[in-house]
Amino acid sequence: MNPSKVTKSSDATAEADDRAVDTMVRRARAGIRRAMKVLRRPEARVGIIASPIGRLMVAEGPRGIAAIHFLWTGAADEALARLRRRFDLLDNETWRENFNRELDRYFRGDIAVLDRPVDLSLVESEFKRRALMRLREVPSGSVTTYQALAADCGAPDAQRAIGTTMATNPIPLFVPCHRVIRSDGTIGNYGGGVKNKLILLRNEGFEVGSSLKLPASAVMGHRRTLIYCRPDCGAARRSNPARALIFADARHARAAGLRACKLCKPG
């Protein structure tokens, strides 16, 4: 047999095989696409961003920011695995650059950047979700305490559970767990490091010194009466702690829509 004929015939068979495979792949794709409509996870963009509080892994899904992870704390693989179980992740450079610019604006003083929507679907417990949503209502320039937040969630004795919730907050910064301090006025711990908590609080107007205590200029505000007082005012002590906030100073309290107490005249 002529060897060139054999080569030609085997090439033709290979081509026919390729065509048959392509046809089958096309047929199968349609079925896969139909089935995937049911199975599909939502898409989320993810990236590593350098910021004044260290390198962060950030993910944003269709409903809002879904995760922020301080990379220096380790366990990035676990955080990524958790995200991948919930979302189809895309490392999108344009989105990463835009997000980086937004974060820069925050660190230059534009606190409104943190009002971006969040997606708490990675939080499994209902109590934790409620606590984190309540925390979102604490305005910039103010802080609350673990105890007050627990009371706000309807469980006044659950300050330790609130501590755990803050420690496992999947979206620090945007769910501002840096705005939760101890009842004695010291700033307490932070999942991203106390140093970073100081940076964030100072960025929002709190002149916290090396004693890690709130400044003397801080005033107590009340979200129901919309009145702010000196910390030693009797009216402030009698108010419901669940609705109380601590503002960096009178200016921040006024900016949040509160008026000065007529008894203690905080300025």
């Binding site: 993810v46 990236g47 590593i48 961003i49 350098a50 390198r55 892994m57 990524l80 189809d88 992740l89 895309l90 490392d91 990463r96 980086n100």
Partner: peptide, 13 residues
């Protein structure tokens, strides 16, 4: 500030 790095993600499905 260190340059952001890329995550070792598998390609989109």
């Amino acid at each position: 500030m260190a340059a952001p790095e890329k995550l070792d993600l598998p390609p989109p499905f």
